[in-house]
Design a protein around this nucleic acid. Structure first.
Lengths: 206, 206
DNA sequence: TCGACCAGTTAATGAGCGTTAACGTAACTC
DNA sequence: GAGTTACGTTAACGCTCATTAACTGGTCGA
C-alpha cells in the first residue's frame, strides 16, 4: 500500500525516523505545518516532543525531508518508466499517468503537502524541490508533445500542470471506501487525464 | 479586473475593509494563514497591526469572511448562470466552466485559500463554507449528468471534483504574462475541462 | 563489569505573535 | 464649541511553541 518516502515497498519494520516522517506527513496535511506542534508529532509515535530531536535537527528538517523525498520519488519513478518504456510514446504516457495516480491515491497526505507547504522551506531546500518538480514536469512535457505534436511547448506545459491539478484532486474525493472504489477511481482519473490532453491538442495555438 | 469579495465590478473606491481583505488574501495565499502576522497585513494597507481591530474582530475573522465570501460568490455566480441559461444543458455547462475559469484566473489568491486554509476556521464557519461548497458541487453535478447521462452520480461527482482541480491549477501556471496569455489560457482550460468530462463519460461504471 | 552510546524524559528558555489597553486626533453633529 | 464617533498610534500582556539543558536508563562490545 503506502510507500514510505525514499524506499520502495518493503516487508521489514519501519525505522523510527520513518514512523516519524509518516505521522508528520499525515498531521501536516491535516492541519498545516504551523498548525501542528512537535509535541503532537511526538505523541503520534509514542514519544514526547523534544525526543524528536534525537532523529531530526528540527521541525523544519522534517518538512524538508518530506518534500524533497516526494519530489525525488516522483521524478525517479517517472524516469524509471521512461527507461523501461517498450511500446511507443502512447504507452509511456499511460504509464506516467498510472504512476502518478498510484502515488496520488496511496499517499494523499504527501500529495497535499506537496503543493501546500513548499513556501515554509529554507531557500536552499525550496530551490532543490522546485528543481526536482521542474524536471518532472519537463519529463512529462516531452512525452506529451511526442504523443500530441500539435501542442506548442507552452501549451503542453500548461496542460501538464492542469492535469497534475486534476490527478492531485484525490484528497477532495470522498474518503477512501467511497464509490466507485480505488480501481474505479484510478481508471476514471486516467481516462479524464487522457481526455484532457486530447482536448488540449485540438486547435493548438488558439 | 479582480472582483472584491461580496460585490461585482464597480468603479468607486474600495473601502478600508475591502483593502484589508484583498491584501490579507494575497498574503495568506503567499505564505499561509499562520505564516502571516497582523503587523504585516496592516503594513500592506498602510496602517499598523492593531489598527486592524477597528475593522475586524481578529485575524480569524478576516479568514472567515474571505472563505465564506469566496464560496458564496462561486455559488451565487453558478446559480445566476443556471437561472439565465437559454440554450440546453450543453451551453449551460460551458457557461459554468467559463465562470469558474474567470474566477480562477482573476482571483488566484482566493482560489489558493479556498482549498488550503479551510481547516483554520471555527467549526461554525467551516460548516457554512463546506455547505456552500457542497451546493456548488451539486449544481455542477446536475448539469454534468444532464449533458452526460451515462455518468452515475458518484462518477459525476468525482469528475466534477477533478475538473475543479484542473481549473484551479491556475496558480501553478507561470505568473500572468506568460504565454499563451489570458485568453489563450482560458480557452485551453475550457477545452481540457470539456475533454475530461467527455472522457469520464465513456464506459460509465467501469 | 565497565564504559560509551543510543533513545528517551522533564524542566527551562526565549522568541514570536495575537490581542488588549491607553491614549491622540480629525471630522462631523447638535 | 462641546461632545461623540471613526480611525489610528504605541506600549504592554500573556500564551503558544520550537528548541536547548540536564539528567536517566538500557544495551552492547571489549
Amino acid at each position: 500500500m503506502s510507500r514510505i518516502v525514499f524506499m520502495a515497498t518493503r516487508t521489514d519494520a519501519p525505522t523510527r525516523r520513518e514512523q516519524i516522517l509518516r505521522e508528520a506527513a499525515r498531521l501536516f496535511a491535516e492541519r498545516g505545518f504551523h498548525g501542528v506542534g512537535v509535541d503532537e508529532i511526538g505523541a503520534a509515535v509514542g514519544i514526547s516532543g523534544p525526543g524528536l530531536y534525537r532523529h531530526f535537527a528540527g521541525k523544519d528538517a522534517m518538512l524538508a525531508e518530506l518534500l524533497v523525498g516526494i519530489s525525488g520519488q516522483l521524478l525517479t519513478g517517472g524516469r524509471r518508466r521512461v527507461a523501461e518504456a517498450e511500446g511507443g510514446a502512447e504507452g509511456l504516457l499511460d504509464s506516467l499517468i498510472e504512476g502518478h495516480i498510484d502515488f496520488a491515491l496511496d499517499d494523499r497526505p504527501l500529495i497535499t503537502l506537496h503543493d501546500r507547504e513548499l513556501d515554509r522551506l529554507r531557500d536552499s531546500d525550496r530551490k532543490l524541490v522546485r528543481q526536482l518538480q521542474r524536471q518532472y514536469v519537463e519529463l512529462w512535457v516531452e512525452v506529451v508533445r511526442e504523443v500530441y505534436p500539435e501542442l506548442t511547448e507552452p501549451a503542453a506545459r500548461s496542460a501538464v500542470h492542469s492535469v497534475f491539478g486534476l490527478l492531485n484532486s484525490t484528497p477532495h474525493l470522498g474518503r477512501p471506501g467511497a464509490l466507485p472504489g480505488r480501481a474505479g477511481t484510478a481508471e476514471l482519473l486516467h481516462r479524464m487525464a487522457r481526455g484532457a490532453f486530447g482536448a488540449a491538442a485540438v486547435t493548438p495555438g488558439a
